[in-house]
Design a protein around this nucleic acid. Sequence first.
DNA 1: TTTCCATGTAAAGCTTCCTTCACTTATTCG
DNA 2: CGAATAAGTGAAGGAAGCTTTACATGGAAA
Lengths: 68, 68
Amino acid sequence: MNNCLKVLRAERSWSQGDLADRLEVSRQSVNAIETGRYDPSLPLAFRIAELFERPIEAIFVSPTKETL
Amino acid sequence: MNNCLKVLRAERSWSQGDLADRLEVSRQSVNAIETGRYDPSLPLAFRIAELFERPIEAIFVSPTKETL
DNA sequence: TTTCCATGTAAAGCTTCCTTCACTTATTCG
DNA sequence: CGAATAAGTGAAGGAAGCTTTACATGGAAA
């Protein structure tokens, strides 16, 4: 599943470690999500959405809704 | 995590099995999510949101946002 | 160059999600 | 009554998310 975590993070000049601390997950988890190796759990997706003050749908893009 | 799947499903007079078919998961998964035994994965949450034509946040309620 | 920080990734292990099979209970309908 | 459908749950196993430890690479800055 595509996402714009990297962009949102860069806008704030946060490292992956900074973001991981705020989300209370490991730096490797943030990296894996950003590089598309796996999707976050729903609870983690909610924490991410709350942190960036955006709806989940504005951060993660369902594969069935990708632009063609 | 709280959700209103059961209500949305009842509004359409679907059984858990009906909903499971539309989501392409097992009936037990639908039941487990409805009864709060576990949260759906993010991809499944997207399919649910698309099926009911509502944002994820209108169906699932983050524990950090529950009404007190 | 050397040091420092950010990033990417691998391995092993645990937890959570999801499956199938199976059984139980309740309700409805003939 | 008996038959059928819906819902809830348990067990066992596979897949995915997340952890810690560890190492490699690249860029910035001294």
